[in-house]
Nucleic acid binder design. Structure first.
Length: 97
DNA sequence: CGTGTGACCTAAG
DNA sequence: ACTTAGGCCACAC
């Protein structure tokens, strides 16, 4: 998909550094649609992982969408406490331009 | 143009 | 700490 919204979502997700994560809601904020968290999820659903680190976008509870994402995150040094990411430690806090 | 759906979020109980 | 209910947005039909 290459509509405007999806592109902006992917641009943001590509900027998430290794070892950090963003929630769907945070991505929504960063693309300028603070209430479009669900739509972000829809975009990620069709993500074919072409250079986009979709495993770094997780649920607000700290649970990745799929277990395989958790293993990739662990490989990047992300710490889990009981199957959820320690958000206080790993939530991405981008520098605002 | 109306409806249903989804890798969501938050507040409340 | 779970579960619900309500809300919001983009997209496919």
């Amino acid at each position: 998909m290459s509509d405007a919204f999806s592109r902006r979502v992917f641009v943001v997700v590509r900027r998430i550094p290794p070892g950090r994560v963003a929630t769907y809601g945070l991505v929504a904020v960063l693309v300028g649609r603070p209430l479009a968290a669900r739509a972000v999820g829809n975009v990620m659903r069709h993500c074919e992982d072409d250079g986009v680190p979709c495993h770094r976008v997780i649920h607000a509870t700290g649970r990745p969408a799929f277990p395989r994402h958790a293993t990739r995150l662990r490989r990047e040094g992300v710490r889990f406490s009981d199957a959820r990411v320690d958000l206080t430690r790993h939530l991405w806090r981008p520098r605002l331009p």
